[in-house]
Structure formats: C-alpha cells, structure tokens
Amino acid sequence: MNPWLEGLICLLLLVGSLFTLIGSIGLLRLPDFFMRLHGPTKATTLGVGSTVIGSMLYFTTQHEGLSLHEFLIPLFLFITAPVSAQMLCKSAMQQRLGFIERTRGKPWKP
C-alpha cells in the first residue's frame, strides 16, 4: 500500500477517534445539561465522519471498486443529530433543569 495513502488513512482515523473521545470528555466535564449537549452533538458527529471517510478510502483502495456506502452513516447522523439535540433540549426545558449561574439570558417557559 502506498505509504502516503496509509498515512492519510491513519491520520483520519486518529482524528476521528480523538474527536469522539473529546466529545465524551465534554459530556463528563461540563457543569450543566445545556452545556453538556454541545460536546456530543458536534465532536462525535465529526468523529464518526472522519473515521468513516478513512474507512471509505481504505476499502476503495484495498478492494476492487468504489466503496461509497459508508457515506450513508455520517449523512444520516448529520440529519438526525440536530433533531435529537433539540428534542432533548425541549424536555430539559420542560423539566426546568438548572443551569450554572453565570449563564446570561434564560430559557422560555414551557
């Protein structure tokens, strides 16, 4: 296998895994629910996206023929992640979950 290509695939996989990890770190570290929501919805979608692009490159070059079907996974995630984030936000607001004091502005009354 071409070393440059292999390096690129390795880089994509590493970046993907790192962002997945950072998303989870955010979920664990941030102090209130609304802030925690930011970690997974972004970092994880890019994490999976990058990993999948690496996998797509690998299968396209190692096996005969174009292998694009993995692309459906990030496509689906990018469409659904905002929807689930908003549903969770709504239910959190409806349950009147607390947020840290220095948050400016306030959520709407349900």
């Binding site: 962002f19 950072i22 770190i25 955010g26 570290r29 941030l30 102090p31 209130d32 609304f34 802030m35 930011h38 970690g39 972004k42 970092a43 890019l46 947020f99 840290i100 220095r102 948050t103 400016r104 502005g105 306030k106 959520p107």
Partner: peptide, 24 residues
C-alpha cells in the same frame, strides 16, 4: 463545522470556569 469542532474541542479541554454560556 470543521473549525467549530476544533474550537469546541479547545473549549471543552480548557478551563471550564472561563466559559460564558448564553441563551440567545
């Protein structure tokens, strides 16, 4: 989105006390 991910990663790994969350 790419740029945002880097920014959010830096914010998440940095000191949490300096974050200023806002409802806009």
């Amino acid at each position: 989105m790419l740029w945002a991910n880097v920014q959010v990663a830096a914010l998440v790994l940095g000191p949490v006390r300096r974050l200023n969350p806002v409802f806009v």
